[in-house]
């Protein structure tokens, strides 16, 4: 038996595979929250993205190199539109962010528009014709240990790494990133130096939604890979927890995403190995772990230094200055 079929290698490799949608969704939510807007609609936006991507993949004939980018684009547009509704309600109309976000999840969610559209379009009867397959990057797939973990993933995973690097640079090394953080920490100050709070908030909420759409597409184009009702099974909510876990930093959020990717894949990894553990216990693990990790993080010393953006959840009203 080669070292690459070692249980831990497989767990690491599937942690990255199953953690990828969490990276996209959590980094998207992080952008919105850095601008001061909580969006609890992640789960709904992911499902809207997943159903749109599945629709394109099922109905568009052509080579994968054409179909898949269009499917991703469709996912981003659909989820971005969902985010735009939330943005309009909470930024322009100053509706309570929590209730508006919940409304978005209910609207798009497993019993809402995503399920309706899938029924109307007749999706989910067969696997997607075009999928993001695993690619043997640099031909290093067979390299011991690191091969399966780093060089045998899908294009979406590699894109997520690029995204994390770009967002890190954007947030902490560019002028726009600095402006974004100031809008999230103190919109009054940002406004007084001529930064448009409204424009920054709209932009980042919608960008965050588009990334949630990509996260949804990860499910319908690689993980499942077809449409199934409610296929994200609550991962949108885990993404929200990951933003807190990662102290609103993309790099730490990526670590958290892979931790939860490992937990959510553990059930069938162990089963495939014939290791007998009650499935209910393993299925519940990611959810219980989210709670435990959240309690620890919320009470740690670091969270006082690296806490949430100060204006998170508060609408900005100019006349209140």
């Amino acid at each position: 038996m080669s070292v690459n079929s070692n249980l831990f290698v497989i767990i690491f490799a599937s942690a990255i595979f199953y953690g990828t949608p969490l990276v996209f969704a959590a980094v998207g939510e992080l952008l919105a929250e850095r601008s001061g807007v909580i969006n609890l609609g992640v789960e709904g936006m992911m499902l809207l993205g997943a159903v749109s991507a599945a629709m394109v993949a099922a109905n568009l004939d052509g080579p994968a190199a054409v179909v898949l980018p269009i499917a991703l684009l469709a996912a981003m547009v659909a989820a971005g539109l969902g985010a735009a509704i939330h943005a309009f309600l909470v930024i322009t109309l100053r509706v309570n962010q929590i209730i508006s976000g919940l409304a978005l999840t209910i609207f798009g969610g497993a019993a809402g528009l995503s399920s309706y559209l899938a029924n109307v379009w007749g999706l989910g009867k067969q696997p997607a014709m075009n999928q993001f397959g695993r690619m043997d990057l640099f031909g290093l797939k067979k390299f011991p240990v690191l091969g399966p973990i780093l060089f045998d993933q899908t294009l979406l995973t590699y894109l997520s790494w690029v995204l994390v690097v770009l967002v890190m640079v954007y947030l902490f090394r560019t002028r726009m990133g600095l402006h974004l953080r100031s809008v999230g920490e103190s919109p009054q100050t940002a406004d007084s130096v001529g930064i448009s709070v409204t424009r920054y908030r709209y932009g980042h909420v919608i960008a965050g939604g588009m990334l949630a759409g990509v996260a949804g597409a990860c499910f319908s184009l690689t993980i499942v890979p077809t449409w199934a009702n409610g296929l994200t099974s609550g991962e949108g909510w885990i993404a929200l927890a990951l933003v807190i876990f990662g102290f609103w930093r993309p790099d730490l959020t990526l670590v958290g995403a892979y931790l939860f990717g490992a937990l959510s894949s553990l059930s069938f990894t162990l089963q495939a190995r014939g290791i007998d553990v009650p499935t209910a216990l393993l299925d519940a693990l990611p959810y219980v772990a989210t709670i435990v990790v959240l309690v620890i993080v919320s009470n740690s010393r670091i969270s006082k230094r690296l806490g949430s953006p100060a204006a998170l959840g508060r609408p900005y009203e100019r006349e209140e200055r």
């Binding site: 509704i85 309600l89 109309l93 100053r94 509706v95 309570n96 209730i99 508006s100 409304a103 978005l104 209910i106 609207f107 798009g108 969610g109 497993a110 019993a111 809402g112 528009l113 995503s114 399920s115 309706y116 559209l117 899938a118 029924n119 109307v120």
Partner: peptide
């Protein structure tokens, strides 16, 4: 009458009510 229509309508009603409430306050 595809499944999911009820949730879609509920979501829309909620969105519009949330937006409408703004007219009461502002």
């Amino acid at each position: 009458f595809p499944a999911g229509l009820v949730g879609t309508l509920e979501g829309l009603i909620l969105f519009c009510t949330l937006g409408g409430e703004v007219l009461v306050r502002y």
